[in-house]
């Protein structure tokens, strides 16, 4: 339930249940002791700061976790409720729980609410692709769609899907972070980022459904491989003119995305039966584009052929005359 962070590279993170309270930053080394459950956390460093709180890396004994500290108890509790509900639904899958503890602590005479969650390692998709190359799109997308399928099957829509919230580590393994925007299907999306939002591109409603996530998923690849042109486009178009076709033009002129143009078009238009089908087609689209790359004869080979043919002819001509 965060949002509207002023400034930054992604300026338009929009939405709603945010406080306008001033930022509070605690020093590394601060020990946070829970008022109700008595757990002790030592803050190591800041992982991120949103409009309704900060996330710290914290150590508890020898293990680490992420600790979100806010100012508005009801708001943080709302996020913790979503995580708890997700954990409840996913217990059978053998996935470790996300939410570890919900509590308050005293700081400068006031009670600050916090919750702790599993620490997720990794870097955002865009940075990962820059470091390891565009060939990872297939694997990362596959794992991400798999995760989304799980959420959708449990009745949730992630909704604030974007570069910053998709962390990649160890050979394209993907974890979603910031579940604060997660919305039950059929409800209004509360947290979104303009450029990833279906409504912003006049491509549909803000009612949470699986297709809302597919749309953001497609924009994610534009952002990850072609951020500059994406932002330029969003700035240059009038709101009433913005549409899916604008995004498709970017995709068609992007050599990295062109091979999966058809898939991305279906994602933007919400044309899959469900997320499993989207995943199946994603896989097929990437296999097909790999095969296309393999069967294509490189230009230098063609060049050599022409050159050698010309050489033969010249030599033949010289020998004959």
């Amino acid at each position: 339930m965060t949002s509207c962070r002023p400034g930054g590279a992604m300026p338009a993170r929009c939405a709603v249940t945010t406080s306008f309270k001033p930022e509070l930053l605690l020093q590394p080394g601060t020990v946070v002791t829970g008022k109700w459950n008595g757990k002790k956390y030592k803050l190591e460093r800041v992982l991120g700061a949103g409009a309704n709180g900060q996330v710290y890396l914290a150590s508890v004994g020898r293990s680490v976790c992420a600790l979100k500290i806010g100012t508005e108890a009801a708001e943080l509790q709302g996020e913790a409720n979503v995580l708890a509900s997700l954990d409840g639904k996913e217990r059978g899958r053998g996935r470790p729980p996300f939410l570890l503890d919900v509590d308050d602590f005293q700081f400068n005479g006031r009670a600050l609410p916090f919750y702790s969650m599993r620490y997720v390692p990794g870097i955002p998709v865009r940075s990962y692709l820059r470091r390891h190359g565009g060939q990872w799109v297939g694997v990362i997308g596959h794992r991400l769609l798999e995760r989304l399928a799980e959420l959708h099957e449990a009745g949730w829509v992630f909704s604030d899907l974007k570069n910053d919230n998709v962390l990649v580590h160890d050979y394209g393994r993907v974890e979603l972070v910031d579940y604060g925007g997660m919305t039950a299907m059929g409800r209004a999306v509360r947290q979104f980022t303009e450029i990833y939002d279906r409504g912003y591109w006049s491509a549909g409603s803000r009612t949470a459904d699986a297709a809302y996530d597919w749309f953001a998923f497609a924009v994610l690849w534009l952002h990850a491989t072609d951020a500059k042109r994406l932002f330029q486009l969003s700035r240059s178009r009038l709101p009433q003119d913005r549409g899916i076709e604008d995004l498709m033009k970017l995709i068609r002129s992007n050599p990295k995305l062109r091979p999966i143009e058809q898939w991305l078009g279906k994602a933007l238009r919400g044309q899959f039966r469900d997320t499993r089908e989207a995943l199946k087609e994603w896989r097929a689209a990437h296999r097909a584009s790999d095969a296309a790359v393999r069967s294509r004869i490189p230009a230098w080979m063609t060049g050599m052929l022409v050159f050698s043919a010309a050489l033969c002819l010249t030599l033949a001509a010289l020998w004959l005359f």
Binding site: C14, A15, V16, T17
Partner: peptide, 16 residues
């Protein structure tokens, strides 16, 4: 430029 998101945030926060 911030008008859209400010309007939404306020409306939502006021409800909350």
């Amino acid at each position: 430029r911030q008008l859209s998101r400010t309007v939404q945030m306020m409306t939502r926060m006021t409800v909350a």
